Computed example of a mutant assay.
Amino acid sequence: MKRCLIIINKNAGTSKKINFEKVEKCLGNGYVYTRKTLPDDEINEIENFEAVAVCGGDGTLGSVLEKVCKQPIDLFYFPVGTLNDKAKAQRYEKHKSVCPGCSDYESSAKPVVYGVCEKILSDGKYKTVDCDGDVFAYVFAAGSFTPIGYTSEVKNKQKFGILAYVWQILEEYKTHRIEARIRNGKHVHEGKFTLVMFLKSPRCFGFHFNKAFEQDGTSGHLLAVRSPKHNGLLGKIEMFFPFFRAFFIGLKKEKTKGKIVFEKTYSTYLDLKSNVDFCKDGEKQTVSEGEYKVSFKRSICNFTVIEKF
């Protein structure tokens, strides 16, 4: 029989609604199961399994995806986080998200497009950012508002759900000055940015704004907002208009000039002039000064989202 590893993150926002018995019943009797919980257990030797079931939020999915994206296995995702933006993005597939053990189940498993950030060395070769931390499931972003993904306390997310982020949004309404040179195809954007985001989703942090999202394409989108001229209250007032345009009105057409940069991208070269804290699928990752290549790739593993269990 095939071997399946089940991983449940007990710190995920809505993890109380899932357990090992539910997952095993959902996936059926075709597997020999191994159970692991986060943050208690170490997750290793995933390559010894034919299937992995991940129960958690976007960050949990991203941490597992970086280990299995190049493996010929089946990856089942049970979204029990707070926002679950990656799972909501997959709804564009328009298939029934039901358990494989159900009688009316039709497999929708297919490779998933993910992002990867690699540092460019002086000899032109690439290396991962921090060994296992180079892959992201749907978002890799730095600057204004992005810390809300990793600064909200677990107990607040489990108690209040998405409302736990509301206070954090007010706290993180700050001006950032990320000095960078961004080269995407023929377009070069240089200067200081209050937001730099790479995205493979129609939504992020609960905002459904990327109207140019393409589910099947091996591409993502670059969103960058230039820093305001002023600091303090004046700077926040200046910031309001481009952020309102991007996240509340939404973006569909590419924008290459002005305060907002919004472009389709397969690979982008990002030259950071200082160390920057990024939000990678809701987890903090500090990226050091230097030049990086951020690109989107198609996985070898087959990916299925299961929302009804």
Rank of each mutant, 00 (worst) to 15 (best):
G133F: 09
F240A: 13
H221N: 15
H187S: 13
G143N: 09
V188D: 07
F193E: 03
G149F: 00
L199R: 05
H189P: 01
H230S: 14
L195Q: 04
T194M: 07
A212M: 00
E106G: 00
V116S: 08
M239V: 02
G149Q: 03
D132I: 04
K229D: 12
V135Y: 13
V139A: 11
G115M: 01
S103A: 10
K229A: 12
P228D: 05
T151N: 13
T175H: 06
A137E: 09
F198C: 03
V116P: 00
A142F: 02
A212I: 03
E190A: 06
F213G: 02
D134K: 02
H176G: 06
K192R: 14
V225C: 06
R177V: 05
H221P: 08
A109D: 07
S201L: 03
Y173A: 08
I148N: 07
G217W: 00
L163A: 13
P202G: 06
D132V: 08
I178A: 01
Y138Q: 12
F207A: 07
S144H: 07
D134C: 12
A212E: 03
W167M: 10
G161R: 11
V188N: 06
H176R: 12
F213K: 03
R245Q: 15
S227P: 05
A109S: 14
L199D: 01
C102F: 10
F205T: 05
I148R: 03
V129F: 06
R177K: 14
D134T: 12
F198S: 05
T128E: 11
A142M: 03
D132T: 13
F140D: 02
H176L: 07
Q215D: 14
G101Q: 09
E238C: 04
K192Q: 15
D123S: 07
I120C: 01
K186I: 12
F240H: 02
I120R: 06
Q215T: 05
I120E: 05
V129T: 10
I162V: 12
P111N: 05
Q158N: 14
R183C: 02
N210W: 01
E190H: 08
L233C: 03
C204V: 14
A212K: 08
S144V: 15
F243W: 05
G101P: 02
G185R: 08
Y126D: 08
F241M: 13
E118Y: 13
G149Y: 01
N184M: 01
Y138K: 09
A212G: 05
H230D: 15
T194N: 01
V112R: 01
T128Q: 00
H221R: 09
R245T: 14
E214N: 11
G124S: 07
V225T: 05
C102V: 03
G161S: 04
S108V: 13
E214C: 10
F145P: 02
V225Y: 00
Q168S: 14
L234V: 03
S103N: 12
R226Y: 08
L233D: 07
F160I: 02
H189T: 06
S144N: 13
L170I: 14
G235Q: 08
